[in-house]
C-alpha cells in the first residue's frame, strides 16, 4: 500500500507542478488543489496500515472501544497522529484555497486577465 500511496503522491505532485507552470491562473488554482491532496496522501503514508495484508474498513480505526490498556499491542490500531495532522492540513488548505479563489476573482476584475504572461507585462508597465 505504501508504494501505491507513494506513486499517488508522485503523480499528483507532478501533475500539480505541471498545472502550476501553466499560463492560466485558473489551472494554477487547480494545481494548488491537487498539491493539497499530494501532501495529505504523503502524510497518511506515515501511519503505516496495521494489518498489512488485508486492511479492513475501520477495523483498526483510532477509536477506542474500551480504555487502552498497556498490554494491548499498539499495532492493533493505526497511528492516530498523522490523521490529526492531515485534518489540520486539510482545513488550512481549504482556507488558503478559498482565499486564493477569491483573489483570482478580484485579479481578473482589476487586471482584466488571468494569463500570467499578460499580468507580468502589465506589472512591468506599472513599474
Amino acid at each position: 500500500m505504501t508504494i501505491i500511496l507513494s506513486i499517488c503522491v508522485a503523480v499528483t505532485f507532478a501533475v500539480s507542478i505541471y498545472l502550476m507552470t501553466g499560463r492560466e491562473l485558473k489551472s494554477i488554482a487547480m494545481g494548488v488543489f491537487l498539491l493539497g491532496h499530494a501532501a495529505n496522501l504523503s502524510i497518511i503514508a506515515m501511519s503505516r496500515t496495521p494489518v498489512r495484508h488485508e486492511p479492513q474498513l475501520l477495523k483498526g480505526a483510532p477509536i477506542l472501544t474500551e480504555a487502552f490498556d498497556a498490554a494491548r499491542p499498539m499495532s492493533s490500531i493505526v497511528d492516530p497522529l498523522p490523521q490529526a495532522l492531515i485534518l489540520t492540513a486539510i482545513v488550512i488548505g481549504f482556507a488558503v484555497m478559498a482565499f486564493l479563489l477569491s483573489l483570482l476573482v478580484l485579479t481578473s476584475r482589476k487586471a482584466g486577465t488571468l494569463n500570467v504572461e499578460q499580468l507580468a507585462a502589465e506589472a512591468m508597465q506599472g513599474a
Binding site: L103, A111, L119, G126
Partner: peptide, 8 residues
C-alpha cells in the same frame, strides 16, 4: 490594480 497583478 497593481497589488492584484503581483499578489498571486
Amino acid at each position: 490594480r497593481l497589488q492584484m497583478t503581483q499578489a498571486y
